[in-house]
Simulated scan of single mutants.
Amino acid sequence: MKQLMNSKGDDLAIESYQARLQALDIANKAARDKGLTLEAMGESCNLLPIRIGAILSGQAPLEATTQECLEKQLDLKAGTLDPLRTPPVRWKAGAIYRLHEAVDVYAPAIQRWMNEQFGDAIMSAIDFTIIAEEVTGSQGERRIRIIFDGKALPYSTDEGWRPADAQLEKKPSK
């Protein structure tokens, strides 16, 4: 599995999955041994079967009431499924995927705006900070605001492309 991954986000996803793996194995083995389907567990816990499947595949966090229900249904000791309570870091999905998507979708428009404001320039990712904050939307909903703050760096102009003898002092001949 490790050779298929290639980013820090993937490393975090692997660590998240590894932390959950023992609890996932116990829960899924118990479900198989008892012959319980996602449908049956979902019905018992008053959740759609796909939500149960997402929890038992490590792709959704386990909430307290669902944990109690599943541990009871699977005849597991209370707390056995605690590792599934934390939100998982997902491969190529979730926040990382959406950040890539936002940049992919809006980067051409942002580049056009940057050109209009700064000429032929880019934003530095070296002289750079990111601010992530929670804000309240117009309907009272919780929202995420991410501010990229980077120095505007102009590309070189024609002046930087003059022949060397026009820019450099001539070396004395021997």
Results as ranks from 00 to 15, higher is better:
98 R>L: 15
63 E>H: 06
154 P>K: 15
135 V>W: 01
97 Y>P: 01
20 R>P: 00
146 I>G: 07
136 T>D: 11
24 L>R: 05
116 E>M: 07
87 P>T: 11
129 T>W: 03
49 P>T: 02
65 T>N: 10
10 D>T: 04
30 A>P: 01
143 R>S: 07
92 K>F: 09
93 A>W: 02
71 E>N: 06
24 L>D: 05
26 I>K: 11
114 M>W: 04
33 D>G: 03
156 S>P: 03
76 L>D: 04
109 A>S: 15
78 A>C: 01
134 E>I: 08
136 T>V: 14
98 R>A: 14
26 I>N: 01
116 E>S: 10
10 D>Q: 05
172 P>C: 03
28 N>L: 02
159 E>M: 10
152 A>T: 07
113 W>D: 13
122 I>W: 04
168 L>D: 13
147 I>S: 13
128 F>H: 15
52 I>S: 01
55 I>N: 02
28 N>M: 04
98 R>Y: 10
89 V>T: 12
101 E>H: 15
150 G>M: 02
3 Q>L: 09
145 R>E: 13
41 M>P: 00
7 S>E: 07
69 C>I: 05
53 G>F: 03
160 G>C: 06
67 Q>M: 09
32 R>A: 11
15 E>S: 12
113 W>Q: 15
125 A>E: 07
40 A>C: 07
144 I>N: 10
38 L>G: 07
142 R>Q: 14
102 A>Q: 11
5 M>V: 09
51 R>W: 06
54 A>W: 01
32 R>D: 06
96 I>E: 14
85 R>Q: 14
24 L>T: 08
4 L>S: 12
150 G>H: 03
64 A>C: 02
68 E>V: 06
10 D>N: 08
50 I>C: 05
28 N>C: 08
10 D>F: 00
168 L>F: 13
49 P>V: 00
104 D>K: 10
10 D>I: 04
107 A>G: 03
68 E>K: 12
2 K>T: 07
60 A>M: 09
7 S>A: 10
8 K>H: 12
77 K>N: 10
5 M>F: 10
17 Y>A: 12
63 E>L: 11
114 M>N: 11
75 D>C: 05
155 Y>L: 14
123 M>D: 00
38 L>V: 00
87 P>E: 13
125 A>G: 13
11 D>H: 09
6 N>L: 06
110 I>Q: 09
1 M>I: 08
11 D>P: 00
163 P>L: 06
97 Y>A: 15
159 E>A: 15
45 C>T: 02
5 M>K: 08
19 A>M: 07
142 R>D: 12
59 Q>K: 12
